[in-house]
């Protein structure tokens, strides 16, 4: 993926296996073409805010962020907070996709304005279906306000 192509889905996931399974599920529905996979919270923020390795990136804001909670450097909740704190990304749809079933994570992410909270099922068929449903819903069914998912 080059810096010039617009990105539809930002997948923030530190576990390469989970990322591979998610990408496979998305690609089955032709949703994986414009997915950027980033392995830690700090890099995710750099990508979103056009900093560091992504300084000068010209492809605007993605249409969806799939965010894990346990991430190296900056954890998922912190990433969510910073997304909501910034004017350009405030309305960006963020879906937490995590192994956690803990109530406190659920409560915290909703407090910081998450759009959806999805537990990753262990069974692969369920997991694949869940990821595919998410991609289909947010890419094809859901509508976003202007400024989101369009090149700046």
């Amino acid at each position: 993926m080059t810096n010039d192509l617009p990105v539809d889905i930002l997948l923030v996931e530190d576990n390469p296996n989970d990322a591979e399974l998610a990408l496979r599920a998305l690609s089955k529905h032709n949703l994986a073409n414009r997915v950027e996979w980033i392995k830690d919270g700090a890099a995710a923020l750099d990508f979103l805010f056009h900093r560091g390795a992504w300084a000068g990136r010209g492809n605007g804001v993605p249409r969806l962020v799939l965010l894990d909670l346990r991430l190296p450097k900056v954890d998922g909740i912190e990433v969510l907070q910073q997304i909501r704190a910034c004017e350009a990304t405030r309305a960006l749809p963020v879906v937490v996709l995590t192994s956690s079933k803990e109530e406190r994570d659920l409560v915290a992410t909703y407090q910081f304005g998450v759009n959806s909270f999805v537990s990753k099922p262990v069974a692969f068929d369920e997991f694949a279906r869940t990821v595919a449903d998410l991609g289909l819903y947010w890419m094809l069914i859901n509508r976003v306000p202007p400024g989101i998912g369009t090149p700046s």
């Binding site: 296996n17 989970d18 399974l21 995590t98 192994s99 079933k101 803990e102 262990v122 997991f127």
Partner: peptide, 14 residues
């Protein structure tokens, strides 16, 4: 809750 599920998902997934 977090870390033990991921390898299981990988086993089942792969």
């Amino acid at each position: 809750s977090h870390d033990l599920r991921a390898p299981l998902r990988a086993i089942d997934g792969f």
